[in-house]
């Protein structure tokens, strides 16, 4: 009998989503930094990089927290620890995001408009990559269940 730990069948889709998100982040960082540099030189370049990074990190935290919670709870979605991790990460992410937004607005090395536009593009692009990952991922209808006596 194999003793592999039970993992959710959703994990490959979430990993795929993280991978696509990272690829999109790289593309937005390159294109955004060039456009940002043309718009407002060094502050524009930095703003585009920060905006793309924030968009990727804050969207990736959701998938990463579900993967981590899945690993810690051994695939038990109804465990309180699962939602403590997922929703705790969500809450923490928004606190950090608020602090970053209010801090960066006053920073001299940032062009707020470039940062905003890059962030919006990164967030919307992240949604598209999430959708592509979910639509391409194969999750069986019936999974993650152990019959009595089979464990």
């Amino acid at each position: 009998m194999t003793t592999t730990p039970p993992r959710s069948s959703a994990a490959p889709v979430l990993r795929l989503s993280l991978l696509y998100g990272a690829a999109l982040f790289a593309a937005i960082a390159v294109v955004g930094s060039v456009v940002g540099a043309l718009v407002s030189e060094l502050p524009g370049l930095l703003s585009a990089l920060i905006g793309a990074g924030m968009g990727f990190v804050f969207l990736a935290v959701t998938a990463a927290s579900i993967l981590l919670a899945d690993r810690i709870t051994k695939g038990d979605l109804l465990s309180p620890v699962f939602f403590a991790l997922v929703l705790g990460a969500w809450l923490l992410k928004f606190v950090v995001f608020l602090v970053l937004v209010f801090t960066l607005r006053e920073a001299s090395f940032v062009d707020p408009v470039v940062l905003f536009v890059t962030l919006v593009i990164a967030v919307l692009g992240g949604l598209v990559t999430d959708l592509v990952a979910v639509s391409r991922g194969r999750v069986p209808y019936v999974s993650d269940i152990t019959l009595p006596g089979s464990s």
């Binding site: 967030v123 999430d130 209808y141």
Partner: peptide, 19 residues
């Protein structure tokens, strides 16, 4: 038994809501 599919749907739901 639908946990896998529902987790994926929950993920995409959270992603859209938080955007």
């Amino acid at each position: 038994e639908l946990q896998g599919r529902l987790t994926v749907l929950m993920y995409i739901g959270i992603a859209f809501t938080e955007a």
